[in-house]
């Protein structure tokens, strides 16, 4: 049994090799998951927003409003101030998108799209773009650049500090991508490894494999619950950090 091959099969993205006029279309298991999550969110939230009169409809409408209030009052307004109100749809979408991508991975035969560095990098780039837009929108180009240097910094320190601050912003965006990717990937690797324990031990002796079944499944259940928690936690962290970084360029030193 090639353990690495099995793990790779479950973790890595699979390109279905669709080409259109010589141009490769990136139709992969992860992108399909992304589309599916997007469609679910789009149709689900659109249906909720129509404000159905049924009991379920009213419940979901209230739930969605409470969710928006949570994002607005818990992340956007405290970190970005009133200026952040216009970006509320972005943050509401970001949280749900990251969350649903992670939750989708808990469904059998569905991949966790956010365990792909390209996907998390794309989300981090979108957040980076938002940070850049906020800086330019509220301070202008020169003002945005000035924001990298804290007020009261001695003149001779500026050439040293400015590149460091720019680098710091880039690293922040990169860290957004790597944190989400690493957390999602590690959780799934642990889940697969726990399952593999049964088969590896079973190859040694069938009775040992049967004995390892219950402990391995208990650990698997525990890790799945942990994954559920991590899904919410990572969505929260990604959205919160984006709002903090965007807020830091709106309200500079």
């Amino acid at each position: 049994m090639d353990v690495v091959e099995i793990i790779s099969h479950h973790i890595l993205d699979h390109d279905w090799g669709v080409t259109l006029g010589g141009f490769r279309l990136p139709i992969t298991t992860h992108t399909v998951t992304l589309f599916a999550v997007s469609l679910v969110l789009l149709f689900g939230l659109h249906w909720i927003s129509l404000g159905r009169k049924s009991r379920t409809g009213r419940l979901l409408t209230t739930l969605s409003e409470e969710y928006v209030a949570f994002i607005r009052d818990g992340m956007v307004l405290p970190n970005m101030g009133e200026e952040g109100r216009r970006f509320l749809p972005y943050f509401c979408t970001l949280f749900l998108f990251v969350l649903f991508c992670a939750l989708a991975g808990l469904i059998p035969n569905v991949k966790t799209a956010t365990s792909n560095i390209s996907v998390t990098a794309a989300l981090a780039l979108c957040s980076g773009g938002l940070i850049l837009y906020c800086g330019l929108k509220f301070h202008g180009f020169i003002g945005f650049l000035k924001g990298f240097v804290p007020s009261g910094t001695p003149g001779w320190l500026v050439p040293l500090l400015f590149p460091l601050e720019v680098l710091s912003l880039i690293i922040k965006v990169c860290v957004l991508a790597i944190r989400l990717f690493a957390n999602m990937l590690s959780g799934h690797m642990v889940l697969i490894c726990l399952l593999l324990i049964i088969f590896i031990v079973g190859q040694m002796h069938i009775a040992a494999g049967a004995g390892a079944f219950l402990p391995a499944m208990a650990l698997e259940l525990f890790m799945t619950c942990l994954e559920l928690l991590v899904a919410f936690l990572q969505a929260y962290v990604f959205t919160l950090l984006t709002s903090i970084f965007a807020g830091s360029v709106i309200h500079t030193h």
Partner: peptide
């Protein structure tokens, strides 16, 4: 390819959700 597709997908989703839901 996945990176660009994800960006397009996500930004389009933000736009559509803003228009039809948020």
């Amino acid at each position: 390819g996945v990176l660009v597709l994800t960006i397009c997908n996500f930004l389009l989703l933000v736009y559509l959700l803003k228009k039809f839901a948020w």
